[in-house]
Simulated assay, not measured.
Amino acid sequence: MTTSIVRWLSRNDVAQTNLPFTSALDIIEGTLRDHGNGAFENPPKIGIHPGHDAFIHAMAGWLPRQRRAGLKWVAGYSSNHKVCLPNITGLLVLNDPDTGLPICVMDAAYLTAVRTSAASAITSKYLSPPRVDRIAVIGAGLQGLNHVKMLSLVHPAAEFHVVDINENAVSRLAEQTYSKATIVHVKDAESAIRTADVIVTATSRLEDVAFQFGWVKEGGLVLPVNPRGWSQDITTAMDVLLADDVEQFKNYIIATGSPYREISRIRGSVSGVIVGRVAGRVSNADRIAVFNLGLAMHDVAIGSAILDIAEQHGLGTIVSY
């Protein structure tokens, strides 16, 4: 039997590829166009839930135009910080579409953070109000940091109001952005949300309501990284409700017992807006909420770009099997 090989990319290997954020934005926008045009397979994620604050999900994606296929096995444990572990961990397996054989296994924590924030930034590119002066980011962890980095590329003139109970976390975020973005520490979420044009709630899973949709001003765009934590009227009082994938969002509502029971007003997908199949912002005063739960095709696309760089620079470990 012929021996096959697979490239293993550790977290350090993935970091060394140093995928530019501008490239990540282009990749995510391109995959969203594929999604909007139906050129993809991205079945709703399936998962298990070993704890009330934990999930382990399987996410498969196929991009026929790029001929890229893979599966991400990702876990989210919001209490991991108590034992000095990251909240999000996982692996991405990329397969040869011609033979089905695995060609790469890589740590998926970094690519998850990158593709999540890039999806928010591209969403904001197409659905934010015409003028974005202020962006509220609730949470100064890894997702908060990456969202500031990505959104500052789309809205370079915006001021970021970052909310975190730990003032040192906001200071660290400001030091790590490596951009000209202005970072202001705001002590409470309500103050930040009421004056923001774009709102990102980059928090871990929240069981209780922490954010009131009534705080969102006219024209505001709401991007919840974790879908929980908002008052239920985020799905009834908004002018436009969208998701990255409507079928996956509906499955999530059913599977998780989400508090957002009324989703009949969901208009369609972000990708539909991008390709002109779905009406997005009609009025400058529209308040818009977008639930980007995460698309496997984004993971496959970003992971494939990381693999390409790794192969060019000889990064990783080759394993025979």
Results as ranks from 00 to 15, higher is better:
A196H: 02
V290N: 11
L293A: 10
F249C: 12
G38Q: 11
G51M: 09
G61V: 12
L153H: 06
N18Q: 15
S271K: 13
G229E: 08
V319N: 02
S124W: 03
D233F: 08
S152T: 15
I28L: 12
H35F: 10
G229D: 03
A192M: 08
I234L: 01
R228C: 04
D208M: 00
V275M: 03
P259G: 06
Q176S: 14
A113Q: 06
L295H: 06
E247L: 14
K125F: 12
E190R: 08
P102V: 08
G314P: 06
P44A: 14
R11N: 08
N42P: 01
W215D: 09
V154F: 02
R67A: 15
Q212Y: 02
P129R: 08
H313G: 00
H57D: 14
A54S: 00
S117W: 00
T236H: 06
P259W: 04
T3G: 11
V132Y: 09
S171Y: 01
M106W: 09
G257D: 12
T31H: 11
A121V: 02
N226S: 13
L242A: 11
A243S: 15
I165M: 00
V93D: 02
E247K: 13
V225N: 02
P44L: 13
N42E: 05
G219Y: 00
R33V: 13
N226Q: 11
A310E: 05
D53K: 11
H147E: 10
T31G: 03
E247V: 14
Q212E: 08
A75H: 01
N87F: 05
L206H: 00
E207K: 12
G36H: 07
T112Q: 03
N168K: 15
P130H: 07
T201G: 09
I318P: 00
T236C: 07
H155L: 11
V105S: 04
L142T: 15
S128N: 07
L111V: 09
L111M: 10
L85D: 10
Y126I: 06
V132Q: 11
D133S: 13
N95F: 13
F21W: 12
G70L: 12
G38S: 10
P50W: 11
V154P: 03
V132F: 02
H49T: 10
V282R: 13
N12D: 14
S171F: 01
A296Y: 07
N87K: 09
L71H: 01
G30W: 01
P97D: 09
Q248A: 14
T116Q: 09
E175W: 01
R281D: 10
R228W: 15
F40R: 07
Y110A: 15
T112W: 01
A237S: 15
L153A: 11
V93E: 04
V225A: 08
L206G: 00
L151Y: 05
T182D: 10
N80I: 07
P20A: 10
D239N: 15
T123I: 02
R281N: 06
M238A: 13
I199Y: 04
D244L: 04
L315H: 13
L221R: 01
A121P: 02
A39D: 13
V246T: 15
P43V: 13
D96E: 09
R7Q: 10
L9D: 06
P43Y: 06
L94D: 06
I318M: 12
I27H: 05
V300C: 05
H155M: 11
C104T: 13
I135Y: 05
W215M: 05
M1N: 10
Y110V: 14
D96A: 06
R7W: 03
D13K: 03
